[in-house]
């Protein structure tokens, strides 16, 4: 039988070992993607694989961005579309979700908990089934291949989760502060915009970053509601450009993947704390 200190030391050693193994498993695929994106094509298809590129080159990244063999690239266009749709979704959902979350947190009425459960349970509705009507409706309204169609479609999953995150933050604001502001003659809307919102700024950031991430990620709606190549966002755009039925342009796929991952990684590095706080605010009430 080991002594207590020895056992503690053993547990700690095993913990670091576990983390180390998991870090390799979690990060190695990403490192492999980066490594694959900067290899000349002849170094990509070799066994044993070249873990570290022997002839690093930016030519694949270049051809993804600027096109090759005299053909232009739609990649910059996909990128711009993704930025517009993602930022649009984020702003639209943030405003709407903030108002709704405040209502649920501060002015509950009979049935408002039920309504909130109802809004959250929309996550259960099969997206493909919703997409049928969204597609037919946007077709009838002549809104296929437009940004508003994609932004509206994205609200289906973005609004409920943003409400959930934000309500968690509103719940942490002490009521006395609002009551004092009300007595001071601030209207209810003024209390929200001038007193409460500044206090939950981290929550707004968390919900905003989260909405940005899932909108940037969205594939199914974008692939279905846009047919014109120049209106595609990055996820369906990459698939359309580089993934054929029988052939995959692996060098370009890896290079494009790196480029798509960079913006969300930068966002994550800056707002990691907010995002972690946000993901747990709704679920963990401590």
């Amino acid at each position: 039988m080991l002594s207590l200190t020895h056992r503690r030391r053993l547990v700690k050693g095993l913990s670091y070992l576990y983390i180390l193994v998991l870090l390799v498993l979690a990060l190695f695929p990403i490192a492999w993607m980066v490594s694959s994106s900067i290899k000349p094509i002849e170094d990509l298809f070799v066994i044993p694989p070249q873990w570290i590129p022997e002839h690093p080159t930016l030519s694949t990244l270049n051809s993804v961005i600027y096109g090759d063999y005299g053909r232009g690239s739609l990649f910059p266009r996909y990128f711009a579309n993704s930025v517009i749709v993602t930022v649009g979704t984020t702003l639209f959902c943030l405003v709407i979700a903030t108002l709704a979350a405040y209502s649920f947190s501060r002015y509950p009425f009979r049935g408002s908990n039920g309504l909130m459960v109802g809004i959250l349970s929309t996550q259960m509705f099969p997206q493909g089934m919703l997409l049928i009507t969204l597609y037919l409706t946007f077709l009838a309204l002549n809104l296929l291949n437009t940004y508003p169609a994609l932004i509206l479609a994205n609200t289906t999953f973005a609004i409920p989760f943003a409400i959930w995150i934000l309500k968690g933050f509103f719940d942490t604001v002490p009521r006395e502060i609002e009551d004092a502001a009300l007595i001071d003659g601030c209207g209810r809307l003024g209390v929200l915009t001038r007193v409460v919102l500044p206090m939950i700024a981290p929550g707004l950031v968390a919900a905003g970053v989260y909405t940005f991430l899932i909108a940037w990620d969205e594939y199914l709606f974008a692939a279905t509601l846009t047919i014109k190549p120049e209106m595609r966002t990055l996820p369906p755009g990459i698939i359309q450009s580089f993934v054929g039925q029988f052939y995959l342009n692996w060098p370009n796929v890896m290079a494009a993947s790196v480029l798509v991952t960079i913006p969300v990684t930068v966002l994550f590095i800056f707002f990691q704390k907010h995002l972690v706080q946000g993901l747990t605010a709704g679920a963990v009430k401590g």
Binding site: A26, I30, L234, I238, T261, F268, V276
Partner: peptide, 13 residues
């Protein structure tokens, strides 16, 4: 933070 990276990478990627 590092272990969150797989979750940050876009699904298509």
């Amino acid at each position: 933070g590092l272990l969150l990276m797989p979750w940050i990478v876009p699904t298509v990627v």
